[in-house]
Amino acid sequence: MSIKETKFNSETLALCHKLMKRYPEGKHKSALIPILHIAQAEFDGWLSSETMDYVASILKIQSIEVFEVASFYSMFNLKPIGKCMLEVCRTAPCWLNGADELVAYLEKKLGIKVGETTKDGMFTIKTVECLGSCGTSPMLQCGAKYYENLTNQKTDELLENLKRENKRQTYTAY
């Protein structure tokens, strides 16, 4: 694998500057979280210290200001993850409708435990707290998409589709 330089292309950089303009003069630090999302999507799905330093340089703030935010929010990964992170909601309404069974099924199917990544770097399983999908449980999030009312069969199909697509699933909407 070639080492990618931690730098946005001009288009992405322009997008960052556009986002910074959404906030009043001198308050552009507000754009930190949106830009971290972009950076995470751009640089392999996680925030390395190089990536965080780079984001700090765009916003002209200290690296520690970026790290303290990145380490607070659960959607920022401070370690590498698989191309597809399967985020299974485990909170009560989902638990009532089979979230534990869904996690067990994924673990068996992929041969890994929660928090681990498959050897081919394709899948990571993560359990997360309420995703606001309580009426359509059990469910999981992968990238920006919600997969709801999951059964074993639907889970199989999802995994097959993700494998076939073979690309990194990211949250970014911009």
Binding site: S30, L59, F72, Y73
Partner: peptide, 21 residues
């Protein structure tokens, strides 16, 4: 403005902190 996963940001002053980056 997009957040990044934190229930606490539903509390209005935490939300404002988060909105300030």
């Amino acid at each position: 403005h997009i957040g990044a996963g934190a229930y606490i940001c539903g509390e209005e002053t935490a939300l404002l902190e988060s909105l300030e980056g």
